[in-house]
Amino acid sequence: MVDFVLNGNAVSVEVDSSTPVLWVLRDELEMTGTKFGCGMAQCGACTVHLEGQAIRSCVTPVSAVAGKQVTTIEQIGAAALGELVQAAWIEHDVPQCGYCQSGQVMSAVALLQSNPNPSEDDIDSFMAGNICRCGTYIRIKAAIRSAAAKLA
C-alpha cells in the first residue's frame, strides 16, 4: 500500500511499490490524461509534477512519491500558471494528434515556474526531453513565449 497526494486529494493504492507512477495513474486510478510513450524517460509524454518539479512518471516507482504531492494534467489548469499555459496552447492551436501534449504542457508549466522569462535556448533545452512526432514544436514555442509575456 502506498499513500500520496494526487491533485490535492489523499490517495492510497494497493500495488507493488516498484510500479511506475504512470501505470498507477492510468491502470489503478483510471486517470488517462497522462500518456505512455516510451517507458524509459526518453519522450516526456508521461510528465507529471512531483512537489512542483517535472518528472517522468514512466520511470518513477510509486514508492518514490509516497507521502508527496503529485499533480497531473487533469488538475494543472486549476492553478493560475497552468491555466495561463493551457490558454496559450489553445490560442496558438498547438496540438495536432495531441497525444504528447499533456506532457508538453506539464513541462512548459515546470519551465515557467522555475524560469518565468526563458530565453530561446532555455526553452529549447528544457523542452528537449519532450518529443512531438507531429512536429508542433514551433507552436509549442510560440505558446510558451506568449505565456511568458503574460507573466512579465
Partner: peptide
C-alpha cells in the same frame, strides 16, 4: 481546431 481544447487539457 475542434479538438484543441481537449488536447491541451488532457
Amino acid at each position: 481546431r475542434l479538438d484543441t481544447r481537449n488536447k491541451s487539457t488532457g
